[in-house]
């Protein structure tokens, strides 16, 4: 059953990711991206990373995807023609993708794999929190300073002169 669910989630992720790339209209691409991001959150859950899945939904769907849709709507006038997205240089793209796939396949075959944890860990969030506050404190603080800087920058840019 859980294997079936996994394949379903994986199929949703891959098919909707394809729709993001191949759909003719930007707004449909954005909606397909919703299902891709949800699928990735589902894959996190299969890896017992429930906190990561929550973050994925909150940041990518609640924040970034909404911003993308806002951007599409604000640039689109209701009366005018619909914005379409076209893919150019398909042949070169296909070649690059094929080379990349070969590279991926060869490295997938030779890489040493971590074994997946098969039992549910009793605590996921508190482990993440403790690691962030001890082992990874410096990267955590650096990331927050980066975010603070971008916040101040955004406030400066959007502020009226005078």
């Amino acid at each position: 059953m859980s294997e079936l669910a996994f394949w379903l989630v994986a199929a949703i992720t891959v098919v909707s990711a394809g729709m993001v790339v191949f759909s003719g209209q930007l707004i449909y691409s954005a909606i397909a991206l919703l299902f891709t991001l949800l699928g990735v959150a589902g894959l996190y859950i299969f890896l017992w990373a429930d906190f990561m899945a929550g973050i994925q939904v909150m940041v990518y769907i609640g924040g970034i995807l909404v911003l993308i849709i806002f951007g599409i709507m604000l640039t689109h006038k209701i009366e005018s023609v619909k914005i379409s997205q076209t893919n150019v240089q398909r042949k070169i793209g296909a070649f690059v993708v094929a080379v990349f796939l070969l590279f991926l396949a060869s490295s997938l075959g030779s890489a040493p794999w971590f074994q997946m944890v098969t039992t549910e860990p009793s605590e996921t969030v508190s482990t993440v929190g403790k690691l962030l506050m001890t082992k990874y404190l410096l990267p955590f603080e650096v990331a927050s300073i980066l975010l603070l800087g971008s916040l101040i920058g955004a406030a400066m840019l959007s502020r009226k002169e005078g």
């Binding site: 429930d50 906190f51 939904v57 909150m58 769907i61 609640g62 995807l65 909404v66 605590e123 996921t124």
Partner: peptide, 17 residues
């Protein structure tokens, strides 16, 4: 869920779309 209250906060952003 382990992340119950956070889960509710996260999925409530789903309806916005």
């Amino acid at each position: 869920m382990n992340i119950g209250i956070f889960y509710i906060l996260a999925v409530s952003s789903f309806g916005v779309i």
